[in-house]
Nucleic acid binder design. Structure first.
Lengths: 215, 215, 215, 215
DNA sequence: TATGAATGAGTGTTCATTCAT
DNA sequence: GATGAATGAACACTCATTCAT
């Protein structure tokens, strides 16, 4: 009966498993055998259901990006205050990046490769995310709440710091293991906590100084 | 006679060429044939001179990181003012990332892979970079110049934003070509200019508000 | 009700479609998917109805050979004059080869493969065809109408020339397209017309010279 | 020293071995592993020296055709009498087909496939063979030695009969083994002897009747 | 009877590495 | 020291066949 639900579930499981493998090994490092094994299906089934390695990667990539874009857009829908919108943006992005373990590595590799495998649709999706932030910043500037800042650079700071922090995790832990004497707890907050830090820093950076009126 | 100089020169040329290829294709995507061709040497010569693919990659990676660490340490040597030190840090990092085209993609991929190929020596090198920033921030905080901030997160914001911005370039240009109607010049500043923006934003974020007359 | 008629019809359609595919691609070049698609049935249905690829090929091959053998035997039944029998033989063979497009390629490939897939029954069938010609020639020789010739070689000449000519068609047309300046209309007669030419040549070759008695 | 001679020898050995395998199995039936094993080289070496399966097949095909064309042209160079030229043509073709075991199956399969893999150069080569015969026939007709015949059909008869006879061999032997009671020695002459038979038959078919005292 | 889905066993091709010179 | 040639071990992908429904 629920053939559709069932099979889209199968495909979804394949994509979920593939996302993990691709995030760990990258496109070229991932083996199709491994992708199939991780998904618990026969290699030929993978080809039958989705197509070749590239098609699988495209599907994974699009899915990751679309999910983040959707979450952010949805979260911002009900918030109108500019500062809260910024906080919401950073919070959702951080939560997504923290929870969906594979998102950050996949995105970093994709950027590193010059977006070689980035389908146009995915770029559009990313544009939605950027647009949400840019619009909010613009609005805040017009309302005199924010200083005039380069919105794109603010975007880079939020996305770059949180993606890097999240993907960094294995290196940080390895480092802590090798150099336990210099263990710094601030290196081991969750990505969500990191999001709050970043949110605070970004707002401190962009908020107009109220004291300007103090004479 | 100057055999040594000559061959170290050759080795340097090989590493430089290999860095470009690795940055474009990643470790798994790069082909040894291609690496040899790019370096203008026979494949077997490459093995004779440097060793296998992994050894070549390690050499490239260490070289990239060491160069950045050296440049930053050197630049900070003569600066003592905390704010100027922050500016110098960001500026040097941005200049390096902007000029050495292959640095950002290589670092992003390395982080994405969980530092799988990061030799301990390289991690130490990165620690030096982080240490330089952390110390400066700590000092500024103690001097009442900076608010108490999470130094590691500030580091992530600087490094993340600039690395991402630099590596982003091909995607930004592709996007501009496909959607010329929404061309935004702020997406196309140089990495050095981006560094200044980031420097300003970071300082705005961390500087203590002098007028807050804490009584 | 007419289940049998219907399914034998279906099987016949499958065999007809498969013959075309096999003639174009050969046994190893044909894909079961393609054979099923060409027949308009599901792949699993094909297995259910006929069996595996080899069984399908056997069925196709036997059918092709049997048809030719039947046609020739039937045509010769009512002809007793030796010369006319030779003409009938060539004519029927040419007509069959010309009309049943897939016959020639299938036979050529089968011969080329050393008859690897030729079932004994099919060989017997071919023996009937050869026998019909051989008997006629023998009879003609005994009647002083034909010179004593190697019957098998005459058979090769008839079958070889017409099969080759028919299967040749795509090459001839391609050649004509690439070298239109040397277009020779004698390369583009129908296989039936070719049969008449071959019939004339063969008879000229084997007929006893009546003038031997002149002197 | 004789690097060239040596390596062209290696390639030649590969081509010779591949010709045998392709003639037995056809393009699709031949396995690259098998081709390499037959040539006594590693599979990767085969790719290094020649290229992929298709390139190998092209090389084999061109070589086979060129050899026959060369032999025939060379043999006809010194013969001017029309009848002798016809005999020479048939004899050389038969000898080639008989000695070079793989030639006939390869050609039959190629024709069967519609010349799908026949490079233009090979078609030209075949044109030379056909041209040699056609010119001789035309000349003989003009000299009143031959009846006006369809030269292309004569060509088909010669080439078709001998190719078929040669490729037929396994089937004939198998048949003889299964039906020893009807063993006919005329089925087991050499291809060269078959060539003489065909030569006689063809000449008998095309020679003008001298006694027809055309007044 | 019919079929979408699944799969074990290949299949052509590539690759990092080594060797002979 | 340098290089054309060689190769074992993968690798992405396909195919004939079967299975569950």
């Amino acid at each position: 009966m629920n053939q559709t639900a069932e099979s889209s579930n199968t495909i979804d499981e394949i994509l979920e498993a593939a996302a993990v493998v691709f995030s760990e090994k990258g496109f070229d490092g991932a083996r199709v055998d491994e992708l199939a094994r991780a998904a618990g299906v026969n290699k030929a089934t993978l080809y039958y259901q989705i197509g070749d390695k590239e098609a699988l990667y495209h599907a994974v990539l699009t899915r990751v990006i679309k999910r983040t874009a959707n979450d952010i857009e949805q979260a911002l829908e009900t918030v109108s205050d500019c500062e809260l919108r910024i906080r919401a943006f950073v919070e959702i992005f951080a939560r997504n990046t923290g929870n969906v373990r594979y998102a950050a590595p996949i995105m970093l590799r994709e950027v590193a490769s010059g977006g070689r495998n980035l389908p146009e649709s995915a770029v559009q999706e990313m544009g939605r995310v950027l647009g949400a932030l840019t619009d909010t910043l613009q609005q805040g500037i017009e309302q005199g709440l924010f200083r005039p800042v380069n919105a794109f650079m603010v975007h880079m700071m939020i996305v770059g710091s949180l993606t890097l922090y999240s993907a960094n995790e294995p290196i940080r832990h390895r480092n802590a293991k090798h150099n336990p004497e210099i263990h710094d707890p601030s290196h081991f907050i969750t990505t969500e906590e990191a999001g709050r830090e970043v949110g605070n820093l970004i707002l401190a950076a962009i908020k107009a100084q109220p004291q300007e009126t103090q004479s």
